[in-house]
């Protein structure tokens, strides 16, 4: 039952992502992607990672994708303003490349089939997760937290930009 659900969710996720990639309107694209990430969160849950599933929804869907939407709206990317999106000439090499990579990856994956799944599903609870995160990987957490701080500072610096200085800088 769970496996069937998993395959359905996988199909939904890939389909949503494909629509996202091919969609011209960025707002639509982000909405499609949100859909795909919901499906992905459920897949995480099925794979025994409930915490990750929750964070996928909270962080990715709730924060990052909304941030994308927010920026798209701030920049007022109306469809008419968008450049003519690529014709098929541009798609062909990209698709060829993607297809080759896909084939190679699948070949590698199925080259050496692993033994079937080890026993029942292993659900990782918050306690076990927390012990691993703040015990074994405490240093990594510190490093990542620093990176977040730097990113915040950098984003603030870039956002300080004054549009009225644009003409002066272009002249220089």
């Amino acid at each position: 039952m769970a496996s069937i659900l998993f395959y359905i969710l996988g199909f939904v996720m890939l389909a949503a992502t494909l629509l996202c990639v091919t969609c011209r309107n960025p707002v639509h694209a982000v909405i499609y992607l949100v859909k795909g990430f919901f499906a992905l969160a459920l897949m995480f849950y099925l794979l025994g990672a409930p915490l990750i599933a929750a964070w996928e929804v909270i962080v990715y869907v709730g924060a990052i994708m909304v941030l994308f939407l927010f920026i798209i709206m701030v920049l007022e990317l109306a469809p008419r303003e968008q450049p003519q999106e690529p014709g098929w000439q541009r798609w062909v090499p990209g698709l060829l490349l993607a297809a080759s990579i896909m084939i190679c990856t699948l070949l590698i994956i199925f080259q050496d089939p692993s033994a079937a799944s080890h026993g029942p599903n292993h659900f990782v609870g918050p306690r076990e997760f927390g012990e691993a995160l703040f015990g074994k990987y405490a240093l990594a957490v510190e490093v990542v937290s620093f990176q977040l701080l730097f990113a915040a500072v950098g984003a603030y610096y870039l956002g300080r930009y004054q549009p009225r200085r644009r003409n002066e800088e272009d002249q220089t």
Binding site: L97, S100, I101, C104, T105, L107, I108
Partner: peptide, 11 residues
């Protein structure tokens, strides 16, 4: 793609 190809070859 090159790296993947190389991995595939070794496999």
């Amino acid at each position: 793609l090159l790296i993947l190809g190389w991995v595939l070859m070794t496999l």
